[in-house]
Simulated scan of single mutants.
Amino acid sequence: MYLKVADELKDRLSSFKKEGIVVLDLDDGAGKYSKMGVCSLDTSFRLLVLSQDQDRSDYTLDIDSDVGEIPIKEYSKIYLDDQMSLEYDDRLALIKLKSPSGVIDGNVPIVDLRK
């Protein structure tokens, strides 16, 4: 799996990765950082920023990206494709997770959970 990161996002994500870890989290209500899942047919992903010492035990699979490896929950790969992209929509000021199949998630927030 590979995640292409839009130029508008590379510096921001790289700076977070210098200070901590960035994970691509399926917000499904399972795991330490998921307070509630989405009760709809939508698939909801978030980019979580964690400090080096925070628990990442839910994120057991790494995917390659333009900004280095990004951990995910292994079972969340069923929602992902081999080639994906994080694109920044300047007009709406939001991040979209896309694949050749279409939009996986039209609004991927960055959530800083560092202590």
Rank of each mutant, 00 (worst) to 15 (best):
D62Y: 03
E74R: 10
Y79S: 01
D64F: 02
S14R: 10
D89C: 08
G37N: 07
D11W: 02
T43Q: 01
D11S: 09
V38G: 01
S14N: 11
P71Q: 12
L86C: 07
S85N: 06
D81S: 13
I21G: 07
T60N: 09
T60L: 02
I110A: 03
V111R: 13
E74Y: 11
L26S: 07
D64N: 10
G29N: 04
M36P: 00
Q83D: 13
R91C: 08
S14T: 10
V67A: 04
G29W: 05
R91Y: 07
N107V: 05
K18H: 06
S76Q: 11
S76N: 10
T43D: 05
K115A: 08
K35R: 15
K96F: 04
S14G: 04
D105E: 10
A6E: 08
Y33A: 00
D105H: 11
F45N: 06
G31Q: 14
V22L: 09
K77A: 13
L47G: 01
Y2G: 00
R114W: 12
E74I: 06
D58Q: 06
L97P: 05
G106F: 07
K98A: 05
S85A: 15
G102M: 01
D55K: 15
I72V: 15
L97H: 05
G20R: 13
I110Q: 08
L24G: 03
L24Q: 06
S101N: 11
L80C: 05
S15N: 10
R114H: 09
M36G: 04
Q54E: 15
E69Q: 14
C39W: 11
D55Q: 13
L50N: 11
S15P: 07
L86S: 05
D112A: 05
V103M: 09
S65M: 07
L50H: 12
S65P: 03
A93F: 08
R12A: 02
L61E: 05
S15D: 14
M84F: 08
D25E: 14
E8T: 06
D27V: 15
I110F: 03
Y59C: 10
I78Q: 15
I70N: 03
I63L: 11
Y2P: 00
Y59V: 12
G68L: 14
I78V: 15
D42W: 02
R91K: 10
I70A: 00
L13N: 08
L94I: 07
Y2I: 00
R46H: 09
Q54K: 14
T60R: 03
P109H: 03
L9R: 03
I95M: 10
Q83L: 12
G37W: 01
G29S: 01
S57L: 02
V22W: 01
D89E: 12
S40W: 00
P109M: 07
L26D: 11
R46W: 10
D64S: 12
V22P: 04
S34K: 08
A30E: 14
S101G: 03
